[in-house]
């Protein structure tokens, strides 16, 4: 994506020379719910964090490995359904349900996505998109899991163990924040490890990757497994947050697209990309929905569409504004 800039020396580590950026961001995020205190503002912040988390998860397969998967909502839904149904059927605690959902999503993705790895570029995207829709339709018509009526989670006394909070949204915010920090650390680690190098090599050229001893299919599967595991975890958080799930709310194409567009707007294949894309997109989407009321239905889709068009002019994403030589000069000056 940065291919158009000849002779550009790659400088991805500008943020990491000084770790205080990370500490500052974390402190700001911890304090944010006390700066904006309205319930709706909390809801928007939870949505932002959730999609930052989902964006980071997608980034592993879509950004670093370059396999544009467009069916992630299915795995988001699988996570939501697994934890919810396991609680209703077997009384399994949603925290364990969250892990089980992740494992189940990995299993399902291994079966249905593995054959797709033979496809490249847009064909892979189309195949995953279709598979995501197939899973949604399957759930819509599957009576055992509630069909189109969905699943209503029983109300329980609020506690961390029950994963339910009714008087305030704050715990959901902090739970999502912790998960965001975890995935951020994981992606940071992957970026600097053999796995990260291999994934990026696969993105650049599968033929070259193979000639260097990389088992391309295996590493794509590893990346996809990481990705869908965390996507499913986010599904459980959503289910516990809304306490009601149905195929239209957890598996829509819109969610699949958002999961992909968030990191792409921010900068696909970069650590900070999803963190930049999520606030811009989600704040715009949630507020357009709130301000325009029922009549605003569809405006959120337009925003996503407009963002996708805007990205044509900045294919490396918003992150590229922070990687140019002019920014580096400015950064040096303020650092003194």
């Amino acid at each position: 994506m940065g291919r158009l800039k000849p002779l550009m020396v790659r400088q991805p580590r500008i943020f990491w020379r000084k770790n205080y950026i990370f500490a500052l961001a974390l402190a700001l995020l911890l304090a944010l719910p006390f700066i904006f205190t309205a319930r709706f503002q909390h809801h928007v912040m939870i949505k932002v964090l959730m999609f930052a988390f989902l964006g980071c998860a997608w980034n592993i397969i879509g950004g670093y490995t370059g396999q544009v998967a467009l069916g992630h909502a299915a795995f988001f839904g699988i996570g939501a359904y697994t934890s919810s149904l396991c609680y209703i059927w077997f009384g399994l605690n949603p925290w364990f349900g969250m892990l089980l959902g992740g494992i189940l999503a990995v299993a399902v993705s291994a079966v249905i996505n593995y054959p797709c790895f033979r496809l490249h570029g847009r064909y892979f995207a189309i195949a995953t998109l279709a598979l995501g829709e197939i899973i949604r339709l399957l759930f819509t018509n599957w009576r055992l899991v509630g069909g189109a009526l969905g699943v209503r989670l029983p109300l329980l006394p609020e506690s961390l163990w029950n994963f339910q909070f009714h008087t305030t949204k704050l715990p959901y915010y902090y739970i999502t924040l912790v998960l965001c920090a975890l995935i951020f650390a994981l992606v940071y680690k992957i970026e600097r490890s053999k796995l990260g190098f291999y994934l990026r090599a696969i993105k650049e050229s599968e033929e070259a990757a193979r000639s260097l001893g990389i088992d391309v299919a295996k590493y794509k599967l590893v990346a996809m497994s990481f990705s869908v595991f965390f996507t499913a975890m986010a599904g459980t958080i959503y289910a516990q947050y809304i306490l009601y799930i149905d195929p239209i709310s957890v598996m829509p194409l819109m969610t699949s697209l958002l999961i992909c567009v968030v990191p792409v707007v921010g900068g696909a294949g970069t650590l900070w990309g999803p963190a930049l894309g999520a606030p811009i997109l989600m704040v715009a989407i949630e507020y357009s929905r709130a301000w325009l009321g029922g009549g605003g239905r569809g405006v959120d889709y337009m925003i996503v569409g407009a963002m996708m068009v805007a990205i044509i002019f900045r294919p490396a994403g918003l992150i590229s504004f922070f990687q140019g030589p002019r920014f580096r000069q400015w950064w040096k000056r303020i650092r003194g």
């Binding site: 940065g2 190098f197 990026r200 090599a201 650049e204 050229s205 033929e207 070259a208 000639s211 260097l212």
Partner: peptide, 18 residues
């Protein structure tokens, strides 16, 4: 068939990870 948007060092590191 080099890895165009990786640095020269990173290209060789991919090989070394073998």
């Amino acid at each position: 068939n080099i890895l165009m948007s990786m640095t020269v060092l990173e290209n060789v590191m991919v090989g070394a990870f073998c």
